[in-house]
Design a binder for these strands. Sequence first.
DNA 1: CAAACAATATTGGATGTCCCACCTTCTGTT
DNA 2: AACAGAAGGTGGGACATCCAATATTGTTTG
Lengths: 242, 242
Amino acid sequence: MTTSGVASKARFSAQARLRALQADIMDLILERELEAGDPLPTENELALALGVGRNTLRESLKVLQALGVVEIRHGFGMFVAPSNFDALADGMTFRGRLSLRHKGDEALELVDVRQALESGLIGSAMDKMTAGQLAAVEESVTRMEELAAAGEPFVEADAEFHRRLFEPLNNALLISLLAVFWKVYRQIHLEVGTGAENLSESAAVHRRIYEAVAGGDKALAAERLNHHFDGIRHRIYEVIEK
Amino acid sequence: MTTSGVASKARFSAQARLRALQADIMDLILERELEAGDPLPTENELALALGVGRNTLRESLKVLQALGVVEIRHGFGMFVAPSNFDALADGMTFRGRLSLRHKGDEALELVDVRQALESGLIGSAMDKMTAGQLAAVEESVTRMEELAAAGEPFVEADAEFHRRLFEPLNNALLISLLAVFWKVYRQIHLEVGTGAENLSESAAVHRRIYEAVAGGDKALAAERLNHHFDGIRHRIYEVIEK
DNA sequence: CAAACAATATTGGATGTCCCACCTTCTGTT
DNA sequence: AACAGAAGGTGGGACATCCAATATTGTTTG
């Protein structure tokens, strides 16, 4: 048997049973020593093995898919998935939008966490940054400046700048988390109106961050990153106060 | 109509359709100006409103439940939920266990992120910490020391110590993230054996962190936190090398 | 009149079945 | 040998049916 408690008639709360089923599936993956990319049993086989109906199993599988544990390919099969935080981003975005209607607490919390991560890790990132990676960062800055001069928004280049800044750390989890925060911030930004006024100033802020990084001054880079986040925080405040 | 694209016959990938359905539900919540705790329509009403079958709707609802967007109470109804990151913790725990079987990259990444968060935010937390909160931190340390003297492990007190350290920031997102990281670390720890050897030394490390915090020396506190994480990282290395 | 209890309505939980859509693979024709 | 189409297997989805949990309502009883 793959696990415990499945056949028990004890009446856990429904939520607990769903969680248990998810855990059973994950245990099954671990017990069978499946790796990322390996195929899982079919839905019918799994439902039989775990002693639940197919629809019930599917509910758990969809949750695991959302959590990035399994990858489901229609007409082909189910597989152990590589990490995927997209659904998490959706959930957080919803939270952020919900909170923005009031005091925006959660949106500000998110900025605080992002600030702690970026300011706290910029030093290590600079240690490991190669010349090529540094050049990539500058390329992003240049693109932001060009777009700003043309009066175009540059969300994509902005995101790329921050991503490239921390690529040297080779930390997929960090990159994912920052991507999540970015996605949430972007969605909130779209929601509440553009704030497209200070394009060139925003580009200049990023230029200054780049210069500090290029100059190897960790403290200055961290400080300028902090300043950048103060600006973001200010924009959120403006939206809330309105 | 609450949203777009539901009735479209265009064949998106199945995954995209599921995501769209989740987004539809969230949009519905936002459009109706529902607050946390407010009730959602019943499953049948929702299925009808969104033009999908009840099972399909349920799959999306379970995902949203896992993401902490909705709360489902058997026999009572569904409600807009307060934040809940439990399922995220499960997913990350799975990832960590999966990766530990190989090089443990993801486990190490997780420690790095946690270190950045704690070291980066300890200063702000100290600024806002009240005398009562400081006393609570020391109480956790004392309990760890007592348990260490008795030869008992103290995972709970350890978690409490870190949680209390950052309570002053009033950042629910941060607390949740740290809780997730803690849960993952704890599960991994259980998985690979106890490492119960250095109990008193571990307690002493926490005592030194507390002393730095109590003394108001932010740099020292950050440094000692970093040292603490170096120890954790070392333990993970031991497990992998074996 | 009030408190305790029981019946009931409403809600989500779970399953089985049927059919559709998609992907891969095999196979047969050109 | 190469391409096209058929076949088999997989997940996707919708119902219908029944089970289980909860709150409410109504009744009984002190």
